[in-house]
Amino acid sequence: MYAQLIKTARSGIKSREEMSEQEREFQDKIDNDIKIEPRDWMPDDYRRTLIRQMGQHAHSEVVGQLPEGNWITRAPTLERKAILLAKVQDEAGHGLYLYSAAETLGESRDELVRLLHEGRMKYSSIFNYPTLNWADIGAVGWLVDGAAIVNQVALQRTSYGPYSRAMVRICKEESFHARQGYHAIMKMAFGSPEQKRQAQSAVDRLWFPAIMMFGPTDADSTNSDQSMAWKIKVKSNDELRQQFIDQTVPQIEYLGLDLPDPGIKWNEERGHYDFSDPDWTEFFDVIKGNGPCNTDRLKDRVAAWDEGQWVRDGLMAHAEKKAAAKIAAE
């Protein structure tokens, strides 16, 4: 999940009696699956929560370019290089769509970027882990995008129209991401012993960070109720995590790799795989800024933005001159 730990902008859900007439009408629309559109009335907290969630989601896409971008120049074949570049480019596009969705609520992209760079907004914890060998690139596409897709497919039904439409477009584009990742790691797992070793290392390192992407367990996820009632969030963290694990374990087995968690066992009674809890202390450490790559990721983003300032200003200044000259000529 690319938007973790979104603090809903209020505590608790109002009962119908506590709601104003406007709030009741708003809730009725949501309950009847009628999308909320930018100019519709909405509670301030709904707006604030959405901006936070879409902003964090957008930041995740853009910061998420970095760990995979780390291997573009080292991709082992021309085709792999093209696939990876196209994939990482898609992430930039997804960031752009999501910033656009947030902009429909009057929050500019520049402002959201500023909040990210000042450390006042977050992005998904997963991108604070390094990509250390080529198999990691396969694993990121397969596991990380795989986890994101589970979440994003659900989010296509989110109540805010522009967010939902962005999700539809993103899901359509994402469908090749997980597949190219699995295809790449298949080559590694079925390749030379050294390649297989890299594949195992990738799965071992990225498994727990991937399942942490869905956020803390429902019991510890105190902010979810209102977001679920507003259909900003559509399924609970644990539901999504279980769905991801159930679909992924057989894929690991197919690769002939060892399961990254000895606790993974099929539970006949539940009809699901059991698994070990990830180290939630690590999760909160990474969220707090102490992951292996937090500092470098943010430094890279800030550098790109700051070093690009003269470019953005230059092209804008030229456009203004051109417009002025056109008016003068008329």
Binding site: Q65, G69, K81, A92, G308
Partner: peptide
Amino acid sequence: VSEWCGHSPILEEDIALANTALDLIGQTQ
């Protein structure tokens, strides 16, 4: 050109540069 991916001055330019790089890789093949 592919070295820019993720580091361009603005998302729109990042995407455009990646398109250029993809075309060049395709021509190379």
